[in-house]
Simulated scan of single mutants.
Amino acid sequence: MDLLKLLIWNCRGAGNKTFKHNLVEILRSHKLEILIVMETKVAFSKMGNFFNRLGFTASTIVDPIGRVGGIWILWDTNHVNVRASSVGPQVIHATIHKEDYEEWVLAAVYASPNPLLRDNLWTKLEEVADNMEKPWLVAGDFNDYANQSERRSYSTNQCSTRPQKFLERINKCNLLDLGSSGPRMTWTNNRQGLANTMERLDRALRNED
């Protein structure tokens, strides 16, 4: 049985030549069936033909507001069916169906840097968790880290309660971290020396099913 192959990519801009070149190279190696692109910085209308040529002929879209945010789910209809059930600026929920597989639910997350808006996101995720009866994958950029080892910074301005609150939210949703390989930190402010901060903001969580 073939595995379903998907990529969740916080690309920090989808309209440039580097993104397009890198995506083509990834597709040559991995034959993706589902692609989730976040922090796109451009409207999907400017990219639709490009994705169609790559075989991603169906999509569910939340465009960025200005150059902030954006979640695009694209898929190859020859191999998989994706049915969106709720669409918002911080999360898209969709049921994934592939022949010979049990249906499961994907939550593609791009959490706001605003703490109050993130609270709204987690309130909605907890509501979904209370009624979830299928395998559930919650993945993307959570704009939060789970412990101090997931943050490297010379700044003394660190909130010790922030990771604890994040873990409490994960636990309330009965989610487990799938772990990762490669670089531990997934985000940097790109500053040099003592001004540099790195954090693990991206992760994949799943329920028991």
Results as ranks from 00 to 15, higher is better:
104 W>S: 04
93 H>M: 12
91 V>S: 08
111 A>L: 10
119 D>Y: 08
96 I>P: 14
86 S>G: 12
88 G>K: 13
126 E>V: 10
95 T>W: 11
90 Q>I: 07
122 W>Y: 09
120 N>R: 03
101 Y>I: 06
125 L>F: 02
116 L>G: 12
92 I>T: 10
88 G>D: 03
110 Y>P: 09
106 L>D: 03
102 E>I: 07
95 T>G: 10
110 Y>M: 08
88 G>Y: 05
95 T>Q: 12
125 L>I: 01
120 N>V: 09
102 E>N: 11
88 G>F: 09
92 I>Y: 00
99 E>V: 06
106 L>A: 06
104 W>K: 01
126 E>W: 00
113 P>K: 13
96 I>C: 15
90 Q>F: 06
106 L>S: 05
88 G>V: 07
124 K>P: 01
116 L>H: 15
92 I>C: 01
91 V>P: 02
113 P>F: 13
113 P>G: 09
122 W>G: 05
124 K>M: 10
100 D>F: 12
109 V>Q: 03
102 E>M: 11
89 P>R: 09
110 Y>L: 09
100 D>M: 07
94 A>L: 04
119 D>I: 12
126 E>A: 13
117 L>R: 14
119 D>V: 14
102 E>Y: 07
98 K>C: 10
93 H>W: 04
97 H>D: 05
98 K>E: 01
126 E>K: 13
92 I>A: 01
97 H>Q: 06
111 A>G: 15
91 V>M: 09
117 L>K: 15
94 A>Q: 02
114 N>H: 09
106 L>I: 15
93 H>P: 05
94 A>P: 03
118 R>M: 04
103 E>H: 05
97 H>G: 03
112 S>E: 02
111 A>R: 13
90 Q>D: 03
121 L>W: 08
102 E>T: 08
103 E>D: 12
92 I>L: 02
97 H>L: 05
97 H>T: 05
93 H>T: 14
99 E>G: 03
96 I>F: 14
103 E>W: 00
100 D>C: 10
94 A>E: 00
120 N>I: 09
91 V>Q: 06
102 E>D: 07
97 H>M: 05
125 L>G: 00
103 E>N: 14
90 Q>N: 08
90 Q>W: 07
96 I>D: 07
125 L>K: 01
120 N>F: 00
98 K>G: 04
105 V>Q: 02
97 H>C: 08
115 P>N: 08
86 S>F: 14
126 E>D: 08
106 L>T: 12
109 V>E: 03
122 W>S: 04
102 E>R: 13
97 H>V: 06
100 D>I: 02
114 N>I: 14
104 W>I: 02
99 E>Q: 09
122 W>I: 07
103 E>L: 05
109 V>M: 05
101 Y>R: 01
